[in-house]
Design a protein around this nucleic acid. Sequence first.
DNA 1: TAGATTGTTAATCGATTAACAATC
DNA 2: TAGATTGTTAATCGATTAACAATC
Lengths: 229, 229
Amino acid sequence: MTSPEKNASPRRRRIPTAAVNRLPVYLQILTDLQLQETTQVSSDQLAALANVNAAKVRKDLSYLGTYGTRGVGYEVAFLIYQIKRELGLLTEWKTIVIGAGNLGAAITVNGGFASRGFPVVAIFDVDPRKIGARVGDLTVRNLDEMTDFVGNNGVHIGVLAVPSTAAQSVADDLIAAGIGSLLNFAPIVLTTPKGVAVRNVDLGVELQILGYHEQMRGQSSSQHNPVSV
Amino acid sequence: MTSPEKNASPRRRRIPTAAVNRLPVYLQILTDLQLQETTQVSSDQLAALANVNAAKVRKDLSYLGTYGTRGVGYEVAFLIYQIKRELGLLTEWKTIVIGAGNLGAAITVNGGFASRGFPVVAIFDVDPRKIGARVGDLTVRNLDEMTDFVGNNGVHIGVLAVPSTAAQSVADDLIAAGIGSLLNFAPIVLTTPKGVAVRNVDLGVELQILGYHEQMRGQSSSQHNPVSV
DNA sequence: TAGATTGTTAATCGATTAACAATC
DNA sequence: TAGATTGTTAATCGATTAACAATC
C-alpha cells in the first residue's frame, strides 16, 4: 500500500485456523508480561514462552498487520490490543451455561469467563431441586425459560454442561433460538447447521490421548518420545 | 516387505498426530453404536457421525491395520478393541487430581474418567479446610504427600486443577516424582522436559476462539461463514 | 555504523481428500 | 455376477520453518 487509504470498515483478512488457535495463547502470555511491567517483547522471547518456533510467532502476528519494530520487537500493550481486536474481544459476548451440576457450577463460579469478556448471564437446569438455587451471583433458571431468555437477551454463546443424552436436544433448542456458538462438554459429536461454531471439550478424549503417549513411553523404553501435544 | 516376518513384539507404527486425536472420537461413536446393538458400520456412516470425510475415516482406521471387509464395512466390536489397543486403553492409567476446588471436584466426581480407564486414585490440595474432606469416594490429601504418593503408587497422569500461580510448581514436583503426562486446566503454558506429554485445556482459550467466530458472523452479514471448529 | 530483530519468501513437511482398483 | 465398500495412491491443500533482505 503506497497511499494511506481511509478504511471506514477495517479490512477483514481471513486468518488461518491454526493461527487463530494460537492467538489466545499469545494473548495470555502477553497479559502476564504486562502484569510484570514488561513493555517490549521479541518474537524469540514470545516463542520461548509459548513453546513454539519464533518464525511461527512472527508469521502469526503478521496476520494482525505490521506492528513490530525491526531491531526492537513488539510493544506488549499494543499487541494485546491488536490480538483482542482480531479475536473480537473488544466486545463482550453474552454467555449462558446449561446444566447446574458440578461442572456447570465450576464454570460459572470459577469465572475466568467473565474476566475474559464472556459474562455468564444465566444458568439453566431441568432438575427442580436445582432450579432456584444460587450459583455464584446467579439463580438457576428452569430450562423451559431458556429459549425466551436467549431471544430477549441477545445471548451469543451457549455452554453445554449437561449429560450426553440431553446435549443434542439442548443444542437444537439453542440454535433455534438464534445462538451462534456452542462450547460442548458432553462426550458426543453435535449435529449443527453450517454457520454455528462448535468447540468440543471432552475430558475423556484428552485423557485417552495422554494414554496413548503413556503407552508409547512404556513401549520404546530406550527411545523416549518427546511430546508436547 | 516380501517375506512375512515373525514379529514377537507387534510392530509399533507411529500414527500421525492428527489421526491419534481423532481415534477417541471414533471410539466414542462406536461405543454408542454398540450400545444400540449395531454390529457393522461403514466408513460413510462413521464419517457422517463424526462430521468428517469418509476417506479420512478409512485412512485413520488403516493405521490400526487392515480390519475392514470390502463390500461390507467394519465390525463395531472389533474396531473398538483395535482402537483401544492402539490408544493404550486396554490398561488402566492411574490418575491423580491436584486441586479440590469446584473444577477438581467436578472432574473427580463426574468421573467419566474412571469409566474410561483412568481411575482417579487420589486428590490433593493445600487448603487446610479442604484437606480431609470427602470428594466422591476419596479423601482430600495434603499436597505435601503428593510426591511420595506418586512414587509409591506408580501414578501415570496428573490433572492440574489449581490456580495458574501454583500450576508450574506443582507440575515440576509431579515430573520430579516421575509422572509422565499432565492434563492442565490452568491458563498458562507449562514448561516441561521432553518426554513429558502435556495437554492444555484452557476454557478461556476455547471461548475466545468462539468469540472470533461470533465476530466473523457479525462482520460479513451477507456471507455466513460455516465453521465446525 | 554495528547489532538486533522484523516481515516475508520459498522450501519442506504433514494432512486432507478425490478417485479407483481390489475384493467381499 | 452385480453392488457395495475397503485400502491405497496421488494430487492438492495448508501449516511449518529456515533463511535473509529490510530496517530500526
